[in-house]
C-alpha cells in the first residue's frame, strides 16, 4: 500500500508540473512550435527545468545499488538507431503538431474533464493498439502453427 501511495504522489508531482508549465495546453504547445507566427518560447523552459533536475538527480540515484521500493533498476536497454526509432518519432511529431497534445500532456489534461482530451486520448490508444497489431497477428500465427 505504501508503494502505491508513493507512486500516486509521484504521478501527482508530474501532473502538477504539466499543469503549471503549460504543457497541458495545446494552444501553448503549438505556439512554441510556430516560429513563423505567434511564437511563445515558454516551453523551452519546461524541458530545461526538467533536465536541470533529472540529469543530476539520476546521477545521485544511480549511486545506489537498487531503488527504495523495488528489487532493481529496470532501464531501457536498446541502443539500436534505426528507421523505427527515427521514423516513428517523426510520425509522433506530425501528430503532436496537428493536435497539440503529446501523451505526457494529454494524460494529466484528462483531469480537466474536457471532452476534447478524451477524444484525443481515445485516438492515441487506438493508434497504439493499431501499431501493435502486426506483432499480435504474427504472434497468434506462430502459436497456431505450434499447436
Amino acid at each position: 500500500m505504501k508503494k502505491y501511495v508513493s507512486l500516486y504522489l509521484v504521478g501527482l508531482v508530474f501532473g502538477l508540473g504539466i499543469s503549471i508549465s503549460g504543457m497541458i495546453n495545446p494552444a501553448k504547445v503549438i505556439n512554441f512550435f510556430d516560429l513563423a507566427g505567434s511564437w511563445d518560447p515558454s516551453l523551452a523552459f519546461v524541458m530545461g527545468g526538467a533536465l536541470a533536475v533529472a540529469y543530476p538527480g539520476y546521477r545521485l540515484v544511480f549511486k545506489h545499488v537498487r531503488p527504495a521500493l523495488a528489487g532493481r533498476f529496470e532501464l531501457p536497454t536498446s541502443t539500436t538507431i534505426d528507421l523505427r526509432l527515427i521514423g516513428g518519432s517523426a510520425v509522433f511529431g506530425i501528430g503532436w503538431g496537428i493536435a497539440g497534445f503529446c501523451p505526457g500532456g494529454a494524460l494529466p489534461a484528462l483531469g480537466t474533464l474536457e471532452p476534447q482530451v478524451f477524444l484525443f486520448v481515445s485516438a492515441l490508444l487506438g493508434g497504439m493498439w493499431l501499431a501493435r497489431l502486426p506483432r499480435r497477428i504474427s504472434m497468434s500465427r506462430a502459436s497456431t502453427a505450434q499447436s
Binding site: 507512486l7 509521484v10 502538477l16 508540473g17 503549471i20 519546461v46 526538467a50 533536475v53 523495488a70
Partner: peptide, 22 residues
C-alpha cells in the same frame, strides 16, 4: 511558471527512479 513546472516534471522523473527504478 514553465521553468517551475519543468522542475516538478524532472523531480517526478527522479523520484520514480529512486523509488521504483523506472
Amino acid at each position: 511558471q514553465s521553468l517551475g513546472g519543468g522542475l516538478l516534471i524532472g523531480l517526478a522523473a527522479v523520484l520514480l527512479m529512486a523509488l521504483y527504478g523506472r
